[in-house]
């Protein structure tokens, strides 16, 4: 329907420089995102406008999810993403797109002003089109934010569980606080990477600071021990308090193949013996 009727493609083609100028000026005067520099704004506006103009030529004005609009979407996606990292609000990003309405309306009024019905149709089409694009920036923006938050969460988890090198060949992972399944998984993966990085022969997982252990967490612990063994490192679990020992037994989790020690100090001693034994032999001949 709009495909035949709209004069927008024609108008954009004939007045593109003028419309772009009006649009940029309008943004500079009113709704410029705080952090967006004038030069950056001009550059974004120019790029967006060019892509927008070309996409409009396809005649596909009712739906921006098609291939004709791929380049526009991609550009907006990039813009929203960079806005996320620069700290713009979603409103600011969307306003960038929506502010194009005004100059377009002005042109439409000049070109089809006499025909009220046509003007209404055209205005409706332009509004619909820019709203869709504006909404799209918001969606991408929110997704960008979510990703950012997730990444920060992960960073924080890694920070809160530092793997420390106790000695040549000996790592320790003192776990503190409640372990849920997701955290345990990240922590354990982290430990395995540290083992590769440092070439440690033994890793001590100390759970003195962990109030409770449920089945899933216990299983993750054991899987980590098994994975470390496949990689060529031994694990010792230390600091299993009586209460946790009971839970583990109740849960029926098999701890038979895992070396456990009451305290980190005990575990460290064993670790030194194990690594020291081979060093001792090597040097003593």
């Amino acid at each position: 329907m709009t495909k035949v009727a709209s004069r927008l493609p024609d108008i954009l083609k004939r007045h593109d420089a003028a419309i772009l100028k009006e649009w940029v000026n309008e943004q500079l005067s009113v709704s410029r995102p705080e952090a967006m520099k004038e030069s950056a704004l001009r550059e974004h506006a120019q790029r967006f406008f060019g892509l927008f103009r070309d996409a409009v030529q396809s005649g596909e004005l009712g739906d921006v999810s098609g291939p004709a609009w791929a380049a526009v979407r991609e550009m907006l996606g990039e813009l929203s993403q960079s806005c996320t990292t620069l700290g713009y609000t979603p409103t600011e990003t969307a306003t960038f797109v929506l502010s194009l309405k005004q100059p377009l309306f002005t042109r439409l009024r000049q070109e089809v002003g006499r025909d009220a019905e046509a003007l209404a149709d055209e205005t409706w089409a332009v509004t619909g089109l820019l709203d869709q694009l504006g909404l799209y920036t918001t969606e991408v923006f929110l997704k960008g934010r979510e990703d950012l938050i997730r990444r920060q969460q992960q960073d924080m988890m890694e920070l809160s569980t530092p793997v420390v090198q106790l000695w040549d060949n000996v790592l320790a992972l003192p776990l503190i606080g409640t372990l849920d399944s997701a955290r345990t998984q990240i922590v354990m993966e982290n430990l395995l990477h540290k083992i590769v990085e440092t070439g440690a022969a033994i890793a001590i997982i100390d759970i003195t600071g962990v109030p409770t252990v449920d089945t899933l967490v216990a299983q993750h612990l054991l899987k980590t021990v098994a994975a470390a063994r496949l990689m060529g490192a031994d694990c010792i679990i230390s600091g299993i308090r009586p209460q946790i020992a009971q839970t583990i037994v109740h849960l029926g989790v098999e701890l038979a193949n895992v070396v456990t020690k009451a305290t980190l100090a005990d575990a460290f001693q064993i670790a030194l013996q194990k690594t020291g034994a081979s060093i001792g032999k090597a040097t003593a001949r």
Partner: peptide
């Protein structure tokens, strides 16, 4: 030299390579 991701996956798969010795490099 088994990689961590491979080791984690093998454990989940249920394969523990009993009787095979391992080393980091």
């Amino acid at each position: 030299g088994m990689r961590p991701a491979v080791a984690i996956t093998l454990v989940e798969l249920g394969l523990s390579l009993p009787g095979v010795r391992t080393a980091l490099d």
